[in-house]
Write a protein that binds this DNA or RNA. Structure first.
Lengths: 341, 341
DNA sequence: AAGGGTGCGGGAACCGCTTACCCTTAGGCG
DNA sequence: CGCCTAAGGGTAAGCGGTTCCCGCACCCTT
């Protein structure tokens, strides 16, 4: 632990005062340093391998350059795509990203909000669905309100939260559009792997899909709606259960791509041939999964853009009115849902 | 911006001194506070919604609870799996993770090391391959050495760097094991999608594979080795080029799974049927890709464990000798490489 | 009963930086 | 040629904590 070299050391080495050293190094507003002196200071800093203490700076300036990102699971490609967008945009702005993962444990978001508030993060971004859980939501809202009151900004990604700016994904309309496409292709006996009960994103997608098919005169019977986890394994199990019920189904809509892939695996294991015997569609258009075979019909979301948008939204206005930006999905039809003969 | 409530406020509210308030709230080592007083302080803190300032704490204590993680691209499942392990382990230890992504730009790691040093991060973890670039490597080494000299710890994940502790992935032996398996299955005319020139990880995998096949008496001709990007698109293009060369090949080894999936897509587009016409193998065993069809033969890496191991390694010993922990891959044979008739 | 611990509050000195404010110097202007 | 102003350097006051050290009770020994 040799080198805690501070700004004082640099100042001394350069033969100037602390104030001058500080001004030379970060070019303070409306104060200039004579070029010659500045050079001297910079040279001294370099010679000593000076590394400014960000914590001290944060403290003196009263603000940090950290932004916090809270996701459920960074290994999930949905979140990692968003995170990629966030880090890229943050980098652009000279900000640093602190990543927190809830691992799907309820209540963790709130805890991370508190931690990030302690760090005095400039903004907090929360991505991902929540459950229909008034208590938990109220607690989260309160934490966030406290954070905002202390000067922070917040943006949600994906799912709106009353009172905060959001990049809202229009799950309902995306699923509805998918339903229309599928109906147009001739599918008449759809089923839904619906995700866990109470999960708002899952519910919106299911409802958008089911409602639209009903409107089109081909309702989805309750026996064709299977609750399951929001994961690959959930999709697998859900599909197994569905096939076990021996209802005759021509199309399975899994409420996200990861589940859809699990569902396709289950179908294969059960001897069904996806894209021939049975159609499958998902939601999200996860990049890593674009090459599965047969190609997965899905609703494309511009996940990588969301991050940048969210940062922009959060940092834009401390305006008291929350802004909600809607993002629509786009149906992408691939080989997993061929036109029905 | 209503609530900058400080510890002094809490102390005043509780009617105690600053010192006592501090001790009550974080239970300082070898000093206790009378339970009754502690309660009073805690109650005051809660009443005022006190949120300790992590920057001030960092400054006063002389250390933070931040650890930095540098990856190339968080959207890449390889890195996001590692990141998931890191965040989980960090969380367990009460640490906070700062994420930096280089976006594959050379020199960025070094820059991030400097930023993280500024943040006074407790440890820096760098995941991912580097290029064979003596200058860049030297610069990075120097930055890291400076960071270590200032009291930080470092651990590399994946690829060793002279002088620093590493969770080293044994790419060579993994690829060699894969080669032996493939030879055992009867493949005799292998090709390699070799990744970009100078990429050390790619090179180790290629060499382990090629060398072993040569030793087994079925050398891979140079014309069967195609350089390409380390990405999905790289795999796609590489495969196209390879098929264009009309050499007759029975097995294609792509040096990572993401490339392998691109390669499979290219093969399909060219009318070849993977797992029948042509075998394909990858490396990493990316979870998200375990359901591709046909199942991809690969070398499994315990990516999610790497993060925890790396934190442990970094935080373990400030011992001057760098420890290198070797991690071996395990060959997983799936349908993409059926036994050769 | 006196001396020595021990437990526990409080005062105050930092931690490393930014910035308000003061002061000197030099140049512009009438 | 003197006065006013602008430029730029320095001094010192924080920013919000932690912790060293001092001092006061109170309890235990012998």
């Amino acid at each position: 632990m040799a080198g805690p070299v501070t700004l004082s050391d640099v100042a001394r080495e350069a033969g100037v005062s602390l104030a001058t050293a500080s001004r030379a190094i970060n070019g303070s507003a409306n104060r200039t340093v004579r070029p010659e002196l500045r050079e001297r200071v910079l040279a001294a800093a370099a010679r000593l391998h000076y590394s400014p203490d960000a914590n001290a700076q944060a403290m003196a300036r009263g603000r940090t350059s950290t932004i916090g990102l809270i996701v459920h699971d960074i290994a999930d490609p949905y979140f990692s795509s968003i995170a990629a967008g966030v880090t890229a945009a943050a980098d652009e702005l000279g900000l640093v990203v602190t990543l927190a993962t809830t691992q799907h444990q309820r209540g963790r978001e709130q805890q991370f909000v508190e931690i990030l508030q302690s760090q005095r993060a400039r903004a907090i971004l929360i991505a991902g669905g929540r459950y229909d859980d008034p208590e938990g939501t109220a607690a989260l809202t309160e934490s966030l309100a406290g954070y905002v009151a202390s000067g922070g900004s917040v943006a949600l990604i994906g799912q709106a939260l009353e009172g905060f700016s959001t990049i809202a994904i229009n799950n309902r309309s995306g699923a509805a559009a998918l339903a229309r496409s599928m109906h147009g292709l001739g599918y008449r006996r759809a089923a839904v792997l619906a995700g866990p009960e109470g999960h708002i994103t899952a519910r919106d997608r299911r409802e958008g899909f089911v409602q639209t098919l009903a409107d089109l005169g081909t309702p989805v019977p309750d026996a064709h709606i299977v609750d399951c986890a929001f994961t690959r394994d959930g999709g697998y199990e859900g599909m197994r259960e569905l096939l076990g019920r021996d209802t005759d189904v021509d199309l399975v809509f899994a409420v996200n791509d990861v589940m859809a892939v699990g569902a396709m695996a289950a179908a294969r294991d059960a001897g069904r041939e996806v894209g021939v015997d049975l159609a499958v569609a998902g939601f999200d258009d996860i990049v890593t999964l674009r090459d599965v075979s047969p190609g997965l019909t899905t609703v494309r979301l511009p996940l990588d853009e969301l991050g940048a948008k969210a940062i922009e939204l959060a940092l834009a206005g401390p305006g008291p009115e929350a802004t909600v930006v809607d993002v629509d999905g786009e149906v992408v039809v691939r080989a997993s849902t061929p036109p029905r003969a």
